[in-house]
Design a protein around this nucleic acid. Sequence first.
DNA 1: GCCAAGTGTCTTGACGTCAAGGTATATCCC
DNA 2: GGGATATACCTTGACGTCAAGACACTTGGC
Lengths: 165, 165
Amino acid sequence: MEDEVDRLVAAWRRERPDLDVEPLEVLSRVSRLARHLDRARRLAFAEHHLEPWEFDVLTALRRAGTPYQLSPGQLLTQTLVTSGTMTNRIDRLTKKGLVERLPDPSDRRGVLVRLTQEGQDRADQALAGLLEQERAILAELSRAQRTELAALLRQLTAPFDNIPG
Amino acid sequence: MEDEVDRLVAAWRRERPDLDVEPLEVLSRVSRLARHLDRARRLAFAEHHLEPWEFDVLTALRRAGTPYQLSPGQLLTQTLVTSGTMTNRIDRLTKKGLVERLPDPSDRRGVLVRLTQEGQDRADQALAGLLEQERAILAELSRAQRTELAALLRQLTAPFDNIPG
DNA sequence: GCCAAGTGTCTTGACGTCAAGGTATATCCC
DNA sequence: GGGATATACCTTGACGTCAAGACACTTGGC
């Protein structure tokens, strides 16, 4: 089936036949799909009264395992936001009672952010809902295709994830 | 090579062995890659003194072909933003002299947004820069792999692009 | 023709993010 | 062990986006 990027690429080939726009076939699809996923996720999380950014922070802590705590700096690298944003997020999650701030016993500059019991419960529920939704989206592909797609994407993301930048 | 999503998935399998987190292998990579691409594009466009959102609007008009004009409504569907956002974007691009607003001769509610000569030049230059950068990112993959990846992504994006939502 | 519903764009106010810079503490090297 | 540099987090102010709704015009049914 045709998608919006097919139309976009066709338009460029008509308007700029001198250019090779093949890269757009991959990367414009990545950007547009991410945009659609953002919207879908927002809807899925709304059922659990969570915003996507709240989910990102809570699940980063949840994944860390007992005692469910990380420094703001560790949260930064996992969520790809700036430090000012993370400060703001931790403030708001603290007010909602989903996380709490503790002094880092080994570094007096530092802080540890810990998930509360309620934060953990909400993260677990929202994750289940998200996976259900994502499974539905991916039903378009066979298992083999999904594996193939994941492998190709890994090749593109690995340089970004491993070279700091 | 391992990427951040491999680590994320491994963490979930350790913390929630009861869940099947396979969907994350694909869709978390899509979201994270899009995030990285946003940052890279911002840098590439900065050389041409354009913001990503400016590029999005200018190139939508450029792709439309002579006389390089579209209604705000048409621009909405192409850029996936809300109408308030588009009004704001058109205002700012008008102030910078890259587009101009014209009354729609066939509908007095309507407006047409037209690219100025300068807007067209800037769009063309920035597109060339973007393609160069994207080609470098995609050099990780063979031509056959890129084609395969584009096809798999199309299968996922088509439902979003064709069913309104 | 006229009224109701639909459409196209703009306005408003709240919100989340970022970049840049500030302060406090830690680390390194002489 | 003292001073320069690095690190960790927070503060600030500007900015772009969104959701909801207002307004003006158009279209369709009677």
